[in-house]
Simulated assay, not measured.
Amino acid sequence: MTPAPVLPERSPFVWRFMARYLDRFVRRHMNALRLARWGVPARIEAGTPLVVYCNHPAWWDAAILIVIGDRLFSDRACYAPFDAAMLERYGIFRRIGAFPVDLESRRGATQFLAASRAILAGPGRALWITAQGRFSDSRARPLGLKPGIVRLPEIAPTTLFLPLALEYAFWEERGAEAFCAFGAPIPAVDLLALPRHERLARMETALTDTLDRLSADVISRDAGRFETLVSGRRGIGGVYDGWRRFASMLTGQRFESGHRPELQRALPRQEPET
């Protein structure tokens, strides 16, 4: 008899701590995290299992995904596969829903499917997957999603699959900008109607289309196309900003640290108290 799959470890307390820490970390080291106005995630019933799958452009992805998950999916317990070797080094991620996957052997596929089965068997959970399985520029085509993801509809046929596009760029400030956008959710039943290779093509096309639309907005440098989820530290700092602040005091003008303050005032969300 096959044993029941075991749900990966997850501490709500540690999740809350890490989410707040990474929120501050992003604000300290980036200018902003922006969500495309057209890419706000669709409303999904709490009892529906959810898989969020995304591209993997940078080291920053883990922090950005945790911040997005905490801010936009606070009603769900979030889980994610994690390179087993890296999880040995960063063990705290085990406490917030990360589970090990051996990327160097066939055993990794078994680990991934077993943990995914346990996660998607219950309500109020979300599985987050960097579906490329490697770092790749957001403009590289084809995306080359890993095929393991197409097995998930078979083990969880009531799941919704939500594409998430990520991109990073420098605009007008010293710090980088992080951008994200969600595509339309794909029901598992729609994917099950397709052969596996066509499922993968369907999911890759949905993510590619979302990425292409997000890239067009990033290239526009129009902050009005985005909602600001996190507003970071602006300005150059040091002597330069000190002199500008002093000059503002002498002239009675309000000091604005940013090079383009209007970019930060593009209808930001209320920042949580920390």
Rank of each mutant, 00 (worst) to 15 (best):
R43D: 12
D70V: 00
S105K: 11
A126F: 06
I66F: 00
L127M: 01
F73G: 01
L143K: 14
A80V: 06
R141S: 09
R89L: 13
F73S: 02
P57H: 06
I68Y: 01
A42S: 14
E88F: 04
M86H: 14
V101D: 03
V67T: 03
D70A: 04
R71S: 09
T48Q: 03
A131W: 07
R139Y: 07
C54L: 05
V101N: 01
R76I: 00
V101F: 04
A131G: 04
Q111D: 09
P147N: 14
L50T: 01
C78R: 15
S136V: 13
F25T: 04
K146G: 03
R37W: 01
L143V: 12
R151A: 10
R24Q: 08
L87R: 12
V67A: 01
L103Q: 11
P142Y: 06
L33E: 02
L22M: 07
C54F: 02
A58K: 15
A115Q: 06
G148I: 07
L120H: 14
M30Q: 09
I68T: 01
A46C: 03
P123F: 11
G91Y: 06
L33I: 06
R94G: 03
L127A: 00
A77H: 08
A42Q: 14
D137A: 11
G148F: 10
R94C: 06
S74Y: 13
G39H: 02
E104H: 13
Q111T: 05
D102E: 14
P57E: 08
A58F: 15
T110K: 15
V101C: 01
R134L: 04
L50K: 02
R34L: 14
S138E: 15
A62F: 09
R107M: 06
A77S: 12
G122K: 15
G47A: 07
A46L: 11
Y53G: 02
E45G: 05
C54K: 00
W60K: 10
H29N: 06
V40A: 13
P49D: 10
I64P: 01
Q111A: 12
F82I: 12
P123G: 08
R71K: 10
P147F: 09
W59D: 07
G47C: 07
T48A: 00
L22F: 02
V101K: 03
R24D: 06
R141P: 08
L50R: 03
S74A: 15
R27Y: 05
V150S: 15
H56R: 11
R28G: 01
R107W: 07
P123K: 12
P123H: 10
A140N: 10
I119H: 06
P147M: 10
A114I: 03
G39T: 04
M86K: 13
K146I: 08
R37F: 01
Y90T: 09
L103A: 07
L120G: 12
I68W: 00
V51W: 02
I149W: 06
A115N: 03
R134E: 05
T48F: 00
F99V: 07
I44A: 08
G108S: 08
I64M: 15
R107Q: 12
R24N: 05
L72A: 12
R71L: 13
M86N: 14
D23Y: 15
